[in-house]
Design a protein around this nucleic acid. Sequence first.
DNA 1: TTTCTAGGGTTCTATTTTAGAACTGTCAAT
DNA 2: ATTGACAGTTCTAAAATAGAACCCTAGAAA
Lengths: 160, 160
Amino acid sequence: MKWDALEEEPCSLARTVAVIGDRWSLLILRECFLRIRRFDEFQSSLGVTRHLLADRLKKLVRFGVLRKIPYQDAPKRYEYILTQKGLDLYPIIMSIVHWGNVHMVDSRGRPLLHEHKNCHKMFDPVMVCSECGEPLTAKAVHVHPGPGARKPTRTGAAAR
Amino acid sequence: MKWDALEEEPCSLARTVAVIGDRWSLLILRECFLRIRRFDEFQSSLGVTRHLLADRLKKLVRFGVLRKIPYQDAPKRYEYILTQKGLDLYPIIMSIVHWGNVHMVDSRGRPLLHEHKNCHKMFDPVMVCSECGEPLTAKAVHVHPGPGARKPTRTGAAAR
DNA sequence: TTTCTAGGGTTCTATTTTAGAACTGTCAAT
DNA sequence: ATTGACAGTTCTAAAATAGAACCCTAGAAA
């Protein structure tokens, strides 16, 4: 399967994966949320090759996750900043970080702690139901085909 | 950077990306949460090559996200089911799906709808603070170095 | 008894991606 | 006139992926 094919899938996960589903895109986004904005900063903090960095930034701009803002003329220089669409990725990033905090830390403990400016406490992210506010688990969720679902076919290929 | 190097990074995001940060792993996990369990089912619903599927399943088992459960002897056959560590990936999967629902659907609408068995309503996932229960945004979060943070170096390489 | 099918892989070659390093070009400061 | 910062692009070699074919076990069918 090509990457382009992923964007066309009738599956919100597949389409999101088409945007952020590779190693470097996720690491670049991590840097974005840590206020990194310039090519060289990304390059030196990530150790990614300049080639791939340029490629991934271009892709993220194309998908509307990042926006190029000029910060100087002569020569033209740009900063890459998150759009609203990009800022909306925050729950994804945080849930990834949280899972790592729970399941992948070594004996030294967490690399980062998160403080909520609202309540001034260190927190973990919790995913809850928009309707009743209860924490979500896979077992408590039922899935239904939506309006954009793939029509059932004789082949029985899975549809989402 | 090698994949193995990612696991060693003092960054919970990087370490999680080492486990699930590629296209097929995420799609395989999607199937797992939709109750797919067998090699052939994965293969036909995803269209992934058998080679890569075998490789990714092996990786997910190695990381303790999936477990092989025999369901027949002679010949030995296994089902791949989520461990607790794997079930804990649910918020990641859901937040990815939700972002796709908001930003990547076409005119036909969402491929899937989610019903919460608790309250019997269709819902969206919301990420809130474990301490005060308020919804989280990137701007309301302050980041601090934790006990596992990389020690600052003269080179100024970013640390997380 | 030979053949077929299902399930779960492994092996092979060709194509794509990625890594790693070097190169380009503009401008500012020394 | 040279050096350095910044933001890329271009090159070759190495790795990962796609796509197809092959292998093995065992039960069912012909």
